[in-house]
């Protein structure tokens, strides 16, 4: 079974093997880094509360992406707040994504294709091998959104981070999202760490909006 951060990344890869444009946004970066931290809290490597993130198990996880995140969080002698780590780990975002893509290729979930763009620029695509894992993630999301039961923590966080990372739009229409908004709101991010990630993303979006409004140039 895939980890939360792997499923989130899988949702960001389209049928042609390209990474969706949303994956380049700061909200996706925050959601992906947040997913790594949530996964590490769920595997009991980290404990996160309103004040700080603490390492409670230093043994490296098998997943290389999670191992890198844990190593970074283990570095400082004093624990830091989640907001600090969301910002700090964005510097390692490219490396984290690269490790996650490699890991998904090794697991046979993705394949890798090298190609040339305009005969010169090399580009890399990650076509999905048989689509089973991505289909399963989508079906779990839809089952929760169309049902009435309380979801499990993993499904709830996947929905919440997919929403704030702008990934629900990849397989639901705008009108479908609008009609499910109440349910999405009810079941998203039933997890303290994921809730804090969502709050951080909202604050960043508000800061960007304020900066744009304050700009002397036309928006």
């Amino acid at each position: 079974m895939l980890s939360l951060h792997q499923e989130l990344l899988l949702l960001a890869i389209n049928d042609q093997g390209d990474i969706e444009f949303t994956a380049g946004t700061s909200t996706f970066r925050l959601a992906f880094v947040g997913a790594c931290i949530v996964t590490l809290t769920q595997s009991n490597h980290l404990e996160c509360d309103l004040d700080e993130v603490r390492v409670i198990n230093h043994s490296a996880p098998l997943d290389p992406t999670l191992a890198l995140v844990l190593a970074k969080i283990s570095e400082p002698s004093t624990p830091q707040r989640l907001r600090y780590w969301l910002s700090e780990l964005q510097e390692d975002f490219q490396e984290l994504i690269k490790l996650a893509l490699q890991s998904l290729c090794e697991q046979g979930v993705l394949t890798m294709e090298e190609s040339r763009f305009l005969w010169m620029l090399s580009s890399r695509k990650y076509p999905i091998a048989d689509g089973k894992e991505k289909k399963e993630a989508k079906l779990r999301i839809l089952a929760v959104l169309l049902g009435e039961d309380i979801p499990g923590a993993e499904d709830s966080v996947l929905i919440g981070l997919a929403r704030v990372g702008g990934l629900l739009e990849a397989f639901l229409t705008t009108s479908e999202i609008a009609s499910l908004e109440t349910r999405i709101e009810q079941v998203s991010n039933l997890d303290l760490t994921a809730g804090l990630v969502e709050k951080a993303i909202q604050e960043e979006q508000e800061a960007i909006a304020r900066a744009m409004l304050a700009s002397p140039y036309p928006v």
């Binding site: 009810q186 039933l190 994921a194 809730g195």
Partner: peptide, 8 residues
Amino acid sequence: TISGFDRI
């Protein structure tokens, strides 16, 4: 509130 548990 932050974790959304007050919703369920």
